[in-house]
Design a protein around this nucleic acid. Structure first.
Length: 568
RNA sequence: CGGGCUGUAGCGCAGCUUGGUAGCGCACCUGGUUUGGGACCAGGGGGUCGUCGGUUCAAAUCCGACCAGCCCGACCA
C-alpha cells in the first residue's frame, strides 16, 4: 500500500469531543469517525486491525471445536417473548415495526436465536456442540461514551455451548476460559479473570475478563499476593472483628432529636461509633419492600443485594414507601421487632451485640441491640462493597487493590433457561426428553480494539502490538521526489511482503517531520527510513516504535533484519 | 431521565455582550522554491452560521421551540 493513495485521515489537532485515550487517538490517527452517538464508521486502517482481531478469535474458538454461523440481526418479537426478555430488556432493545405491523427487534444478543436453531437437535448423541458467530449487535445504551468502548452498534463474537448435562457445560466453560486467555494474550491484553454477577443473564456462574484501564467502567478488587480478583459487585474481604465488650446489654430506647445520619449519631451524646451502629436501608425488589442491614460504616453493593434476592435490579425505596412500611423516616430506621418484612443482613453483623440502631420512631434510637436476639434476620449475605486496603479473604495475608477495568469478555453458565423457553430438548440415553444445557460466551471486537489502544500508546500516538497492527512496517521515503529512494522503498516492501508482512510505503510529498509524526501517530511497530543521506552509504534506518531505538542497517540486510525483529 | 456545556468551512476556534457585506490557524487546489522531525512565497476554492418559527428595515448575533453532540450522575450482559 502506498500512503499517497491510502485513506488515513490523520488530524493535527486532538478532536474536541474525545475524552478517553483510545477515542482521541483512533479519531486523530484516522481509524474511526463518529456517525452519531454510539455509532462509528470503521475506516480502512481500523478495519485491518479488526480483521486481525477477528482472525485471532476465530482461530482460538475453532481450536476448541467451534462451528461458525451467521444469524440474523433482525429478530421476531415472538422468540424474545417466549424467553421473557422482550419485557426484561426494556429501552435497551431497539424495536421496529415492519410494514405488516409486526414487532421486530434488532438483535442485542443471540441466546434465543441459537436456542431456536438448537431445537432441531434431537439426541444426546449429537452433543456437545459449540456454535458461534461474529456479528453486529444493537443495544440502545442510555449513554454511549468513550469512543468504541461503549457504543450502540458493535461487533461481537458470541459463542454458545450445548450439552446434555452440567458436567458437559463445565468442560466447555473451562475450554472457553482457556481460549479467552489465549485470545487476550495474543491481543497484547493483560486480562484478569474475575468472578462476576450474572445479572440479567441468569445462570449459575460467570467470569469476566477485565483489562486494567482508567477508561474502564467496572471496578475490580485484586489481591497481588494470591491473585484473587473479583468484580466489586461480588468481591469479599476480611473485616476485622469489633469488640462489643462494655456496651449495654439490654435493649433501651433513647431520644435522639435531630439525628438523621450515622455520622450525627457518632458525635451525639450517648450515641455510638459507626462500626457499632446497624444501618437499615429500605429497598424495592420486584415491587416488594425489603430491608438491607449493614454495619454503620459499610456501604451497600446494590448488585449483591439484587443477586441475593434473585432479581434483576433493586432501587432505594421512596420516602413515602419507607414511612408506610416502618412508620418512620430515613434516619430513624431499624429492624428491631420488624417481623413481616424480608430482612437481609450483611455477614459483618453476625453475632454483634450492644449495637445502636433506629427505633422506627422519628428522633428515637435503640442501644443495647443484640442482633441475634432482637432482629429477625431472614438471610445472611455479603452485601457490603469492599474498599481498597482491606485484607484479602482468599489468602488472608494480602491487601486488596481496587481499580477501574474494561470488560473485554464475559462467559456465562446459562443452564437450561433458554432451552426450556424455546423447546430445545433432546432425548437422553433413557429416551427421556431433557432440555439442552447452555453456556454463552462474548467478546466485543471494537471494544477490544479500543482496549489495545488504551494499553498500548504513548504521548506520540498508538503503539500497535505486531499481532494486530494494521501494517507491520512503514517505509518512509524521506524525499518523495528522489527516484532512487522510491525504488529502494519498493524493493524493501516487496521483500517484506514476500515474507508475509504488511507494509505501507509513505511516498507522500510531505516534509519528513510530517511523515515521522504520522507514522508514530498511526502506530506502525517498525519504521524503515529511506533517504538520500543513508543511500550514499548503502544503509537505511530502522526504528522500533515502542522503544524508539534507531539503527542503521545495510540495504541488502534490512529485509532479513526487520523480518527477524517482527518474528521475535 | 436529572445537572452542566457545546453546535459558525474537513479539523481546531474567534465573532454573539452592543443586530448592519462571515473571519483566523491548520488542512485543501495551482505555480514556484524546499525536503533526515509538523517549511516558505504568490495566487485560489470552500460555510443553508444545527433546524424551524418569532421580533426587526435588517438576525450567526435578540426571543421561543425543537434537534444533535460532549461531560457528570442515574442506568448498563
Amino acid at each position: 500500500m502506498r500512503w499517497s493513495q491510502a485513506f488515513i485521515p490523520t488530524l493535527r489537532d486532538d478532536p474536541s469531543d474525545a475524552d478517553a485515550v483510545s477515542h482521541r487517538l483512533l479519531v486523530r490517527a484516522g481509524f474511526i469517525r463518529q456517525l452519531m452517538a454510539g455509532s462509528y464508521s470503521i475506516l480502512p486502517a481500523a478495519f485491518r486491525v479488526r480483521a486481525k482481531i477477528d482472525r485471532i478469535i476465530r482461530e482460538e474458538i475453532d481450536a476448541i471445536g467451534g462451528q461458525q454461523f451467521l444469524l440474523g440481526a433482525l429478530h421476531p418479537a415472538d422468540v424474545w417473548r417466549r424467553s421473557g426478555r422482550w419485557d426484561v430488556m426494556g429501552d435497551e432493545m431497539f424495536r421496529i415495526v415492519d410494514r405488516k405491523g409486526a414487532d421486530v427487534a434488532l438483535g442485542m444478543t443471540h441466546e434465543e436465536i441459537f436456542a431456536t436453531v438448537a431445537s432441531e437437535l434431537t439426541s444426546y448423541k449429537q452433543l456437545p456442540q459449540l456454535w458461534y458467530q461474529i456479528q453486529t449487535k444493537f443495544r440502545d445504551e442510555p449513554r454511549p461514551k468513550s469512543g468504541l468502548l461503549r457504543v450502540r452498534e458493535f461487533t461481537m463474537k458470541d459463542s454458545y455451548s450445548l450439552d446434555i448435562d452440567q458436567d458437559g457445560l463445565d468442560k466447555q466453560f473451562d475450554a472457553h476460559y482457556g481460549a479467552y486467555e489465549r485470545i487476550f494474550s495474543r491481543l497484547g491484553l493483560d486480562a484478569i479473570a474475575v468472578d462476576a454477577s450474572s445479572g440479567a443473564m441468569g445462570g449459575s456462574g460467570s467470569v469476566e475478563f477485565m483489562v486494567r484501564s482508567d477508561a474502564g467502567e467496572d471496578l475490580v478488587a485484586y489481591c497481588q499476593a494470591c491473585g484473587y480478583a473479583a468484580n466489586v459487585e461480588r468481591a469479599v474481604s476480611v473485616v476485622p472483628a469489633i469488640d462489643d465488650e462494655g456496651g449495654p446489654d439490654a435493649l433501651e430506647m433513647f431520644d435522639t432529636p435531630g439525628v438523621r445520619t450515622i455520622q450525627a449519631l457518632e458525635t451525639f451524646p450517648g450515641g455510638a461509633t459507626a462500626d457499632r451502629q446497624v444501618k437499615t436501608l429500605v429497598y424495592v425488589a420486584d415491587d416488594t419492600l425489603v430491608l438491607a442491614l449493614l454495619r454503620g460504616d459499610h456501604a451497600l453493593q446494590e448488585q449483591k443485594l439484587a443477586d441475593a434476592l434473585g432479581v434483576g435490579e433493586v432501587r432505594p425505596a421512596e420516602a413515602d414507601e419507607i414511612r408506610g412500611l416502618l412508620g418512620a423516616d430515613a434516619g430513624s430506621l431499624g429492624a428491631v421487632d420488624v417481623l413481616d418484612v424480608t430482612v437481609i443482613a450483611d455477614d459483618a453483623l453476625r453475632g454483634r451485640t450492644s449495637m445502636t440502631t433506629g427505633a422506627n420512631i422519628n428522633d428515637k434510637h435503640y442501644r443495647g441491640v443484640d442482633v441475634d436476639r432482637d432482629i429477625a434476620v431472614t438471610r445472611w449475605e455479603s452485601l457490603r462493597e469492599v474498599v481498597a486496603g482491606e485484607r484479602c479473604a482468599s489468602c488472608d495475608s494480602g491487601t486488596l487493590e481496587v481499580f477501574k477495568t474494561i470488560e473485554c469478555g464475559h462467559i456465562f453458565k446459562l443452564g437450561t433457561k433458554y432451552a426450556e423457553a424455546l423447546g430445545a430438548t433432546v432425548l437422553d440415553e433413557n429416551g427421556k426428553s431433557r432440555p439442552i444445557v447452555m453456556g454463552s460466551y462474548g467478546i466485543g471486537l471494537e471494544r477490544n480494539l479500543a482496549a489495545v489502544v488504551e494499553v498500548h500508546h504513548d504521548e506520540k500516538g498508538i503503539v500497535w502490538p505486531v499481532s494486530v497492527a494494521p501494517w507491520h512496517v512503514v517505509v518512509t521515503v524521506v524525499r518523495a521526489k528522489d527516484e532512487a529512494s522510491q525504488e529502494v522503498a519498493s524493493s524493501i516492501a516487496d521483500g517484506l511482503e514476500g515474507r508475509g508482512w504488511d507494509v505501507m510505503i509513505d511516498d507522500r510529498n510531505e516534509r519528513p517531520g510530517v511523515k515521522f509524526a504520522d507514522a508514530e501517530l498511526v502506530g506502525f511497530p517498525y519504521r524503515i527510513t529511506v533517504g538520500p543521506r543513508g543511500l550514499e552509504t548503502g544503509t537505511v534506518e530502522v526504528v522500533d516504535r515502542r522503544s524508539g531505538t534507531q539503527s542503521d542497517v545495510a540495504l541488502d540486510a534490512v529485509v532479513d533484519h526487520v523480518h527477524g525483529l517482527l518474528s521475535g
